[in-house]
Amino acid sequence: MAQLAGLTMDAAAGGLFGLIGTALGRVTGIFERRQAFAQEQARWQHELKLHELTMQARGQETEAELALIAQSGSWSGLEASIMADAAIGEASRWVINTLRLVRPTLTMLLWLITGWIFARTQDGSIVEAAVFAATAATLWWFGDRAPRGRSAAQRLA
Rank of each mutant, 00 (worst) to 15 (best):
A5T: 12
L7S: 03
D10N: 14
G15I: 04
F17Q: 10
F17L: 05
F17A: 03
G18L: 08
I20W: 05
I20A: 11
T22D: 09
T22Y: 13
L24Q: 11
E32V: 02
E32F: 05
R33G: 02
R34I: 03
Q35F: 10
A36V: 06
F37C: 08
F37N: 04
E40A: 05
A42R: 13
W44L: 13
E47K: 10
L48C: 13
L48M: 15
K49L: 15
K49A: 15
K49R: 15
T54P: 03
Q56D: 06
Q56T: 06
A57I: 02
A57K: 09
A57C: 02
G59Q: 03
G59T: 05
E61Q: 12
E63Q: 13
A64M: 10
E65S: 07
L66P: 02
A70M: 05
Q71G: 00
S72F: 02
S72P: 00
S72Y: 06
S74M: 03
G77A: 13
L78V: 13
L78N: 15
E79G: 10
S81L: 14
M83P: 08
M83I: 10
A84V: 09
D85N: 03
A86E: 14
A86W: 14
A87F: 10
A91E: 14
R100F: 01
L101K: 11
L101N: 14
T107N: 13
W111E: 01
W116D: 08
D123I: 01
D123Q: 09
D123V: 00
I126G: 03
A129Y: 06
F132K: 13
A133L: 04
A133M: 00
A134S: 04
A137L: 15
W141A: 01
F142H: 15
